[in-house]
């Protein structure tokens, strides 16, 4: 699934070396050894090495019919395996796990989702939205088990047959899909002796602690004045905006990364759209709706910092516009009964 054609690279004078790995980078030199045996010297280096799926560590993970979903190859393998499955167990109720579960609902299979946390999407949305999505899945026939951990995968003839939970429960499973997060690819950064945490640490110019080395996207942990502990965002928006900043800075421009983060997730006929980040929120306000609509506004000391909404695209767009260009207070929103689209219209007049 090429995002750009070969012509794009040649037009922009980019030499694309597919099927070639950087074997080693020596700390202190500006030289990379490639898997084809050649060396390449650089003035600047951009690490856009991504992340890989976090793997299960319990017994039985080497059994057949245990899948991860990260690459298109993973997707093809999984798709081919699904029609033969009767009992599918999804481990992890994050975006990957729930999106997979939602796409399996047409299949005549029993789908069970297991989550170690006490709610779905615990890392990414407010509890009200967790409840909303949990109901959405259960109503459509998914069996959802939260606050449960996997003990082991049990197999027969090398193929998974059951999933055993820590509480002793045994679930039939002829197909297991694991979606328990990602791990940044840190190996090259470590060879260079760069500062790494759970990502390659970069500043607001996407620069690592070595001035001519940059990192962007899923592998980068952005530490700015407002997030001292660092933030590794795994999203399309972050990958594109952060790498543009890196490219601009390498090309000599003075650019800083200050894009408003946004995310989405499609599950069944529900479109979750998030703008901003809820970290540091001191209060949240629910704007209830129906079984197919809901939103939550997050505030930090009366300033709106994040809006999570389901099937309210106009609200999401209005929030993206308003949060990006200025301050929206709780009072502003109370004045319009939390109808942020109305607030946008009022402000644009």
């Amino acid at each position: 699934m090429p995002l750009k054609t070969a012509a794009f690279y040649s037009t922009h004078k980019i030499d694309l070396e597919l099927g070639t790995k950087v074997v080693s980078l020596e700390s202190g030199t500006n030289n990379a050894l490639l898997s084809n045996g050649t060396h390449i010297a650089f003035d600047s280096l951009a690490l856009a090495v991504g992340a890989r799926a976090r793997t299960l560590t319990c017994p039985g993970t080497n059994l057949g019919n245990v899948y991860y979903l990260r690459s298109i190859a993973d997707a093809h393998l999984l798709r081919a395996a699904i029609p033969n499955a009767e009992n599918i167990v999804v481990i992890g109720a994050g975006f990957i796990g729930l999106e997979v579960a939602s796409s399996l609902v047409q299949q005549p299979t029993q789908v069970t989702v297991i989550e170690a946390e006490n709610r779905v999407l615990a890392r990414v949305v407010a509890p009200e939205l967790s409840r909303f999505f949990a109901s959405a899945h259960v109503d459509r026939g998914v069996r959802l088990l939260t606050s449960r951990k996997v003990q082991s995968l049990v197999g027969e003839n090398g193929v998974v047959r059951q999933v055993q939970l820590e509480d002793g429960t045994l679930l039939d499973a002829d197909l297991v899909i694991v979606g328990i997060g990602s791990v940044a690819n840190l190996e090259l950064a470590q060879q260079l002796g760069l500062l790494v945490m759970n990502g390659i640490v970069v500043d607001s110019q996407s620069r690592t602690n070595r001035p001519n080395v940059f990192a962007a996207g899923d592998c980068a942990l952005f530490r700015g004045p407002f997030n001292a502990s660092g933030l590794r965002l795994e999203s399309v928006q972050n990958a594109m905006d952060q790498s543009r900043v890196a490219a601009s800075v390498i090309a000599g421009a003075d650019k800083t990364y200050d894009s408003l983060p946004w995310f989405w997730s499609d599950q069944y006929d529900l479109k979750l759209q998030i703008v901003g980040l809820p970290c540091g929120a001191t209060e949240r306000v629910l704007r209830p709706g129906t079984a197919s609509e809901i939103s939550v506004f997050h505030f930090q000391n009366d300033t709106c910092i994040c809006v999570e909404s389901v099937n309210r695209p106009r609200e999401h767009i209005a929030a993206r516009r308003l949060l990006a260009c200025g301050k929206v207070t709780k009072q502003d929103l109370e004045d319009v009964d939390f109808d942020i689209s109305a607030l946008m219209k009022r402000q644009s007049k």
């Binding site: 995002l3 054609t5 399309v236 928006q237 594109m240 989405w264 479109k271």
Partner: peptide
């Protein structure tokens, strides 16, 4: 359009999100 190599961002990959 994208497969033909024309310059189209299509950031979200086709789900009316961007």
């Amino acid at each position: 359009i994208r497969d033909a190599g024309l310059n189209l961002t299509a950031q979200c990959g086709g789900c009316a999100s961007c």
